[in-house]
Design a protein around this nucleic acid. Structure first.
Length: 422
RNA sequence: GGAGAGGUGGCAGAGUGGUCUAAUGCGCACGCUUGGAAAGCGUGUGUAGGGAAACCUACCGAGGGUUCGAAUCCCUCCCUCUCCGCCA
């Protein structure tokens, strides 16, 4: 959510942000509701003040005295008026809240202009992308693929997009997770193992609800399977005030992630590219507003290092205004090169939300200068998502003899230097 | 799952219909005191919204209700504790 004061005092800034993100939001309509809400609020408050004054006066009167009874009669009409006004206020308030939620976060000044993904800026490219690999094939076409990654039985047991990982397949997943967590710990992120179901309040605070409800799996008792560890992790400090000396807080968490991916059919759903359940390690930061852009660069570097150590070619995209998410102020995507499919796969998305998430989740710190609570800045990024890294690893490291070379950094976790599908 | 008890400020804990912006204690901050400290004494000490300000309003687990008036009474839900049952 945006700062309501920002809307009132500098509506042009908000209009500019809407334009840069190429969204269709009626800022003036939100302003109108805001004004109406504030008028109603002060009306209700003055009626309440009247009630309180009468209350104090009546406490001093003998109960049942004529003066007392006269006051009761008088206050009855005020009570009715308060009730009516309050009902209107409440309605207006929820309309106000909904309207405020339509306003996107302001893009940072360093975010490039642009409407479509094609206008994202290629920030950096690492590794040999154009190296000839005559035997490279999409990972799902590797002979024996289903022996280690059994999509067929997964579909029977659960449904499409819920594969079994078997033998070396399962071991690769575990090795990657172990590698990610170990490296992240070295970089100073404290490991957390969070609940993988969250309640509606948590899903609302991080923005999954109400809009993206259809993207989550919901249980019979109204809990949601997490689409990313970002949700339980960010909500850890929801409605809390953190000591400034505790900042910055760096954490990482492995969870399985569950996504219904409703309506996302197309060619990028093959194999490990897009599944309903996948493993991911998420990096999360709660920081002082002053440092959040330095922290974003560091976050991106930390995620990049993982790909570098695995020896996988990748590129960094700086997202343009139009491809920025609703809540992000600035975002980098990390895309790994899949040599068989000859395409880039997104494996991490490193974002600075500034105070946007923190305001919605009410995560604050006590400022040493003012002594007052202020909103923290939150950042997050994957470090990293397993299946797509795995897909790229299989495709890039497939040898002419059909074996797959395990990256050196992964060998201590995997236990061998290579493996075969057949 | 069954039975019972309870959720009040940073913490402990009083308050069971009216002057509660919540007693008291601890903690914390500042001041007095002191050679310095402790003790003692004094003052202050939540969050949010509105307002230029004085100030006003809301918040006693959450939501609804009764009432002229609710921390207090009623209803629903959530959570914690104790005992019993079941079980990794």
């Amino acid at each position: 959510m945006l700062d309501p004061k920002l809307l009132r005092e500098t509506p042009d800034l908000v209009r500019a942000a809407v334009a840069r993100k190429h969204l269709d939001v009626d800022v003036d309509a939100v302003l109108a509701i805001d004004t109406r809400w504030r008028t109603l609020l002060s009306e209700v408050e003055s009626l309440r003040a009247k009630q309180k004054a009468a209350n104090t006066a009546m406490a001093a009167l003998p109960k049942g005295s004529p003066e007392f009874l006269a006051k009761v009669g008088e206050m009855k009409t005020v009570a009715t008026a308060v009730k009516e006004k309050e009902a209107v206020l409440k309605e207006t308030e929820s309309a106000w809240q909904q309207a405020m939620l339509t306003l996107p976060n302001l893009p940072h000044s360093s975010v490039p202009e642009g409407r479509t993904p094609e206008e994202n800026v290629v920030w950096a490219t690492h590794g040999a992308v154009d190296e000839p690999r005559p035997h490279a094939v999409p990972h799902w076409e590797i002979p024996g693929f289903e022996r280690l990654f059994d999509f067929g039985r997964g579909a029977k047991v659960t449904g499409a997009g819920f594969p079994f990982f078997i033998g070396e397949g399962a071991r690769l997943v575990r090795a990657l997770l172990n590698f990610f967590l170990t490296e992240n710990a070295k970089a100073g992120y404290v490991e957390v193992s969070p609940p993988i179901f969250v309640n509606a309040a948590s899903a609302t605070a991080t923005g999954q609800l109400p809009d993206k409800e259809g993207q989550m799996y919901e249980t019979a008792d109204k809990l949601y399977a997490v689409p990313t560890a970002e949700v339980p992790l960010t909500n850890f400090y929801r409605d809390e005030i953190i000591e400034e000396t505790a900042l910055p807080i760096h954490r990482c968490a492995y969870t399985p992630c569950f996504r219904r991916e409703a309506g996302s059919y197309g060619k990028d759903v093959r194999g490990l590219n897009r599944v309903h359940q996948f493993d991911k390690v998420e990096l999360l930061k709660w920081v002082h507003p002053r440092t959040s852009y330095d922290e974003l660069e560091a976050l991106r570097t930390d995620a990049e290092r993982l790909l570098q150590k695995l020896g996988l070619p990748y590129r960094v995209l700086l997202m343009c205004g139009g491809d920025l998410g609703f809540a992000q102020a600035k975002k980098y995507d990390l895309e790994v090169w899949a040599a068989g499919q000859k395409r880039w796969l997104e494996v991490s998305s490193c974002s600075n939300f500034e105070a946007f998430q923190a305001r919605r989740a009410q995560i604050r710190f006590r400022s040493k200068e003012t002594g007052k609570p202020e909103l923290v800045h939150t950042l997050n990024g994957s470090g990293l998502a397993v299946p797509r890294v795995l897909a790229a690893l299989l495709e890039n490291n497939l040898q002419a003899d059909g074996s797959v070379k395990v990256p050196e950094a992964l060998q201590p976790h995997f236990g061998r230097e290579s493996f075969r599908f057949d």
